[in-house]
Simulated assay, not measured.
Amino acid sequence: MLACIAAGAVLSAVLAAPTLALASAAAFAVSELADLLVYQPLRGRGLLRAVLASNAVGAPLDTIVFLTLAGFPVWSAVPGQLWVKAWATLIPVAAVLAAHALLRHRLRSDRP
């Protein structure tokens, strides 16, 4: 995970203006580390709980750190940012849950 955070920071530095690269790298590092700190202890209690809890912590941190360091208006943008990030979490989680339910159903149906 730490290697991914470092790679994200390097990509930001290469692809963006210095202010945006710093804001992006800092936001990415802070939010991913927070995600990791929340996700790891909860993973044993279920993937869904761990993913939702870590995203509930990481997404607001990412938004606030990035917008603040990039010099954008923070509080007017936070609701929209969090709305989009919530859907970006909920849609894949719903797809995984649906696939898991379908697989469970098929496995039950294949039993004699």
Rank of each mutant, 00 (worst) to 15 (best):
M1A: 09
M1E: 06
A3M: 10
A3T: 02
I5M: 06
A7H: 05
A9W: 00
L11H: 01
L11Q: 02
L11N: 01
S12R: 10
S12F: 00
S12G: 14
A13R: 13
V14C: 06
P18E: 06
P18A: 06
A21D: 05
L22W: 11
S24Q: 07
A26Y: 07
A27S: 06
A29E: 08
A29D: 04
L36D: 03
L36E: 09
P41S: 01
R43Y: 01
G44L: 12
G46Y: 09
L47G: 05
L47P: 01
L47Y: 12
A50R: 08
V51Y: 03
L52W: 04
L52P: 00
S54P: 04
N55C: 04
L61Y: 04
L61H: 04
D62T: 07
F66Q: 11
L67F: 14
T68L: 14
A70C: 10
G71E: 08
F72Y: 13
P73A: 04
V74I: 13
W75D: 05
S76N: 06
S76K: 12
S76M: 13
P79W: 09
P79K: 08
W83A: 14
W83D: 05
K85E: 04
A86E: 04
A86G: 05
A88V: 09
T89P: 01
I91N: 01
P92W: 10
A94P: 02
V96N: 03
L97S: 00
A98N: 06
L102K: 10
L103M: 11
H105T: 05
H105K: 10
H105L: 15
L107G: 00
R108T: 07
D110I: 15
R111Q: 15
R111N: 08
